[in-house]
């Protein structure tokens, strides 16, 4: 049961919770497709507190709440709000909880969502905390695999890109420990998974680590690509040299087997060439669209009557 519970980490959800979110998301998808008006969240208000830039995540939460019949309030740019006057997150949360029924937070520091959940009597959803976690993105990722491939078990999943700082990758890997999957992690050496994350996963997940996709691409069911962030490289020449090796073009998609898919949490920059978009492998825009039914399911299960 998720009612009135905060979602800070993907590990806050039981296996049953995960399945229930997916079942509920299916129902929400039907509602969206039938254009029926919902009034599940009638008088409820969802507050979005984004201390970092975001387009998709914030808009998808707001869209999900409004599709459920609820309303949303949102903090203006943190640079022009009371945050810039030095207000602590704890104080901000204690105020916002009295303005809303559920709070969605994105913050540049790790542990911010956990702190918010400790100070709020209203449920808090973590929409990304530094390089920590991004559990709702993970729900969307898992839901996409289920919808596009039928099931998650017995799949070969290759995750490529920035594995060190990418919070979506940390949450996704933690969630994948619940399934019987083979995971291959492909990244330049300086962006490999941090030791503290790897240590937590190594006994729970069948992981192969590589710096090249070549050997694994033809056997992969899910190719999950993340952005190599230029600012993570002290040597910009190194970045320019590497980016080509971690770029998916139409040539790579031809090596992939039938019924395999390419996912990306977006935004993408150079790592997937636009020519890939029109192939049947490209599911990243579909993945982004699943953000609405999944977040509708989550909001209604947490803050619905």
């Amino acid at each position: 049961m998720l009612k009135n519970k905060s979602l800070v980490s993907i590990s806050d959800l039981s296996d049953d919770d995960l399945n229930n979110v997916f079942l509920e998301a299916d129902k929400m998808l039907d509602y969206i497709n039938s254009s029926k008006k919902l009034d599940i969240m009638g008088s409820k208000i969802l507050a979005t507190l984004f201390y970092e830039p975001s387009t998709r995540t914030r808009l998808s939460f707001e869209s999900a709440m409004q599709r459920l019949g609820g309303s949303t309030i949102s903090m203006a740019d943190s640079k022009t709000s009371s945050v810039s006057k030095g207000e602590t997150l704890a104080d901000t949360i204690r105020i916002i909880e009295s303005y809303s029924d559920i709070i969605v937070i994105r913050h540049p520091l790790e542990g911010a969502a956990f702190l918010a959940s400790k100070f709020s009597s209203k449920p808090v959803i973590n929409a990304g905390d530094g390089s920590g976690e991004h559990p709702t993105q993970t729900l969307v990722d898992l839901y996409t695999i289920k919808k596009e491939l039928g099931e998650i078990n017995n799949k070969k999943i290759t995750i490529m890109g920035d594995l060190k700082y990418g919070r979506t990758v940390h949450s996704l890997l933690m969630a994948l420990t619940r399934y019987n999957v083979d995971v291959t992690l492909v990244s330049p050496e300086n962006l490999r998974l941090s030791d503290y994350v790897y240590n937590e996963l190594k006994n729970k997940l069948n992981i192969t680590i590589s710096d090249s996709l070549e050997k694994y691409i033809n056997d992969t069911d899910v190719l999950y690509v993340t952005r190599l962030q230029k600012e993570r490289f002290t040597d910009k020449n190194e970045y320019s040299k590497l980016i080509g090796s971690y770029r998916i073009t139409a040539k790579e998609t031809e090596k992939m087997k039938n019924n395999s898919i390419i996912m990306h949490p977006l935004p993408r920059v150079d790592e997937i060439s636009p020519e890939v978009d029109s192939t049947d492998k490209a599911k990243y825009f579909k993945q982004a669209s699943y953000g609405i039914p999944v977040r509708m399911a989550l909001i209604s299960m947490i803050a619905g009557d």
């Binding site: 602590t88 997150l89 702190l115």
Partner: peptide, 13 residues
């Protein structure tokens, strides 16, 4: 030791 941890940012915890 994580400088990016919320407990190192002056919060009342």
């Amino acid at each position: 030791t994580n400088q990016n941890c919320i407990t190192n940012s002056g919060e009342p915890v």
